[in-house]
Every structure is written in C-alpha cells, then in structure tokens.
Amino acid sequence: MKINFKNILIALIEKEFKSYLRSINNFMNMIVFMIAIIILFPLTVGPSEEKLTLVSNAIVWIALIVSIIPTLDKIYISDFKNGWLEQYYYSPLLLEIIILIKCFVFWFFLIIPLTIFIPIFSILLNIPFLIIFWNIIIFAIGSLGFCLIGSICSSLTLGTKSNNLISPLLILPLAIPIFIFGNGVVEAVKSNYDPLPNLYLLITVCLILLIISPLISAYSIKIALTK
C-alpha cells in the first residue's frame, strides 16, 4: 500500500496545533504565573534600584523557567491516556521522528510566544536594551533544550501514578548546563567580553540533546506502552 509521508507530517502538526489551541488555559496559566513572580519579587526585595539591578535578570529567568517546568512533564500524558501514543507507535514514521516533531511543535506553539513577554517584563525591571536582546536569543535556543529535556522526563514518568514530584527533580539537574552557559552569555555582555563562546556551548548542549532526547524518549515510551 502506498504511504504518503507528507500526510503523516501534516496530520501530526495539525493535531498538536489544535490540541494546544483548545487547551489555551495551559498557556494562560504559564503567563499568569510569570506575571505573579515578576510582581512579587520587587515587593519582597524592596524598592531600592541598586538591589533590583543586581537581581533583575535572574528574576526574569527564574520566572520563565518556573512557569515552563510544570507544563514540560505534560508533553505526553494526555496522548498516553487517550491512546494516541499507541497510534504513533503504529504509524509508518519512526517514533523517534514523531517525538522530535512533537517537541518542535511544543516549542514553537507554547514556548516561543513566551519570548514576546521577555521585553515587557525586562522593561518593568529596568534591564538594559542590549541584555534584553541577548536574553531573547538565549531563551529561544535554551528553551528548545528545555523541551527536549522535558520530553525525556515526561516519557520516563509515563507509567508512574503520580509524576508530579519526580519530573521537576529529573528536569533540574539536566537543565544545569543550559543555565550555566545561558547565564555566561549575559555575564560576558555585562562585562564587555565576547559572549559568543558561551553561546556556542549553549548551542552544542542543545544539539547533543537533539540527538539523545528522541532516542531515550522513544525507548521509554515503548516501555510504557508495552507494560
């Protein structure tokens, strides 16, 4: 029988897009959570401008990461419950490739729109324009790494009854390289050094994850399906 691989790609992207569009409250939750952190932080630190300049960049990053992590472990859970992961398993396309597409779609529709909020929050916290620019670049690249790490953790915890506790514990240690190199770029810009070496290292980490993550995820999804 003739198999049309173009149809598989279109179907997959259409499904993911429609699912995210219909569960828009997940996205709104993320934004509300981010705004809450950004507003509460200056209130607790105090109105001194010196203190705020010292921590303002960290606040934006913490707000972004903390709001993303709860959604990361839910990449596969609804598909697992609905039986769609089984349909992916039966698809003529390799499960690894399907996972990679799923991660990209998740990143594109759910995480990339968040970058719009970085300049808004940064202006609120009086962060210089140059740093805002670099923050957007680092976040766009680093968040793909986060999605790929999220894919590993989400697939590993599919079979467990309560995955709420395990996932953040798995995600955080794996995400440390992204934090270090991402922060390295900003520190280099602040002290007028060349930020590119750290940026290249950040891209390297993401590229390594791009290879490893679909393989591990596909393997653990197959285990979860056949359990």
Binding site: I3, I10, A11, L93
Partner: peptide, 20 residues
C-alpha cells in the same frame, strides 16, 4: 483511542494522516 480535545471528524482525519 480518540482525543477528547478534537472533534470526531478531526480525530479520524488525523488518524488517516498518521497511517500515511
């Protein structure tokens, strides 16, 4: 094995697509 967030038509359409 149908997705709750999609309509019946969309579910079947995407299923056919996934089969190629």
């Amino acid at each position: 094995s149908l997705s709750d967030e999609l309509t019946i038509e969309e579910n079947l359409k995407i299923w056919c697509g996934l089969k190629g």
